[in-house]
Design a binder for these strands. Sequence first.
DNA 1: GCCTGGATTATC
DNA 2: ATAATCCAGGCA
Length: 206
Amino acid sequence: MVASGPGDRRLGRRFFARPADVVARALLGKVLVCGERAGVVVETEAYVGPHDLACHARVGRTKRTEVMFGEPGLAYVYLCYGIYDLLNVVTGRLGHPEAVLVRALEPLAGMDGSPHTARGPGKLTRALGVTRAQNGLDVVSSQELFFRAGRRVRAEQIASGPRVGVDYAGAWADEPLRFWIDGHAAVSRRPARRRRPREGGHERAT
DNA sequence: GCCTGGATTATC
DNA sequence: ATAATCCAGGCA
């Protein structure tokens, strides 16, 4: 076994019981553990509540969004594009639906060590072995899926920008709610650039 | 029921 | 640029 240290401390309820954007920043550098596999969180996105038009909870309480209304610290895992399971952690206060999407990990144990292995939210869950079977799991008390304190990340190392793949969210698509460790090799590709305007280009007139 | 459209990724 | 793949949510 590896020697124990301060970084082995588990993240508790109060860590997650804060606004999603705060938790999203704070999760950078923390270690996500799933069974025998683990990695350092290097990229996240915050989905801040029902008023956030990119957040699944914008439609209110449904079978899918139910877990987001639960306790902070619950895992919200859902199927994206019919192919990938994406992992979020519920944040904020009970009854207020918000969550943080974990988008990339630096591999630590139990998986291929290449930086691309867990780069991107879909590849991350595959590399870590997370599936929808873990939806609703409490990462504060679970023995199979949880976070450790990990390493310290200074504020100057954290970069932010618009979330990926949420162009449908109107003005919310531009909010800088994506966070990553600047320059880290495991951070997923930058957000898809907008297509170049073809014809004179006035389509963004608002 | 039927239809539309994804919090993605690999490949053309 | 687009296919892969299936489910949630809206509407009838």
